[in-house]
Computed example of a mutant assay.
Amino acid sequence: MDVQAAMVDERMLRRVIALLVSFADLAERVAGRSAPVRWLVLLILRHAEMVAEDFVFDAAGMPPAALEGIAAVGNDPDDALCLAARFYALAVALCALLPIGGRFDWRSVQRSLSSGPVAPGSGRALSGYAPKPNDTS
């Protein structure tokens, strides 16, 4: 496989994972909304979940699953949270397809953590950001 094609595939998978997590967040948020709003958003999200499920199974090379009986069909807040959990599960399944040892440098994080804990107001932070003291004037 071409290296450039592999990087594009990895980037695309990461974008799809981010989209699935954002759908899950939307489903969690709609659980607290009124019934008509919840009905409309869940209608759209259920269609997105079916498409995402087909994509995940296709990307994993698995046969399509017969999970229609398990999917929530109501419009209660619990059904919205169940749909959010399904989106999270699909995102985790796609994470398993990502190559191990991506471009993130874990050694730099370990070096920063081994230098000791970051005390509030010490001026040291992992990202190089030093919080400013509160202005009380």
Results as ranks from 00 to 15, higher is better:
F104H: 04
A72S: 15
L90C: 07
I70R: 14
A96P: 00
L98W: 01
A93Y: 05
M62K: 11
P63W: 08
D58P: 01
L113S: 05
V56A: 15
F104I: 13
L90S: 09
S114P: 00
V109R: 09
R103W: 03
A89R: 15
F55E: 11
D58W: 00
R86G: 04
V56M: 09
P77H: 03
L94A: 08
L81S: 00
M62G: 00
C82N: 11
G102T: 06
F57H: 12
L67M: 10
A60K: 14
A96L: 10
G69Y: 05
E53R: 15
R111D: 09
L90E: 06
F55L: 15
A93S: 15
R111S: 04
G74W: 03
G74N: 09
D79I: 07
I100R: 14
W106H: 10
A84P: 02
V109K: 03
S114T: 02
D78W: 08
L83T: 06
L81C: 00
V56H: 00
L97D: 04
L90W: 04
E68I: 03
R111Q: 13
V51Y: 01
S112L: 12
V109D: 10
L94Q: 09
F104L: 11
S108L: 13
C82T: 11
D105E: 07
V73Q: 15
G74R: 06
A66E: 04
A93F: 05
L94T: 05
Q110H: 10
F55S: 07
A93D: 15
A60P: 06
A80D: 07
A52W: 07
G61K: 07
A91G: 10
A72W: 07
L94G: 05
W106L: 13
L83F: 02
A91W: 07
L83I: 12
A89W: 00
P99Y: 08
P77F: 08
R107N: 10
R111I: 02
V109Q: 06
V51M: 10
G101A: 11
D58L: 11
A84N: 09
A80V: 05
L113A: 12
W106F: 10
I100E: 08
P63T: 12
A84H: 06
S112P: 01
L94R: 06
D78G: 15
S114H: 01
G102W: 11
D78P: 00
R107F: 06
A65H: 04
V92E: 15
G74S: 11
F57T: 04
E53M: 10
I70Q: 12
F87S: 02
R111M: 11
S108Q: 11
G61Q: 11
L90N: 14
S108K: 13
A91H: 05
Y88C: 01
D58C: 02
A93P: 03
S112W: 07
C95D: 05
V73L: 12
V109I: 15
A71C: 06
Y88G: 05
F57C: 06
P77S: 07
L83Y: 01
A84F: 03
A84M: 04
S114K: 13
R111G: 00
V109Y: 04
E53Y: 02
S114D: 06
S114C: 03
L113I: 06
I100L: 09
I70D: 10
F104A: 13
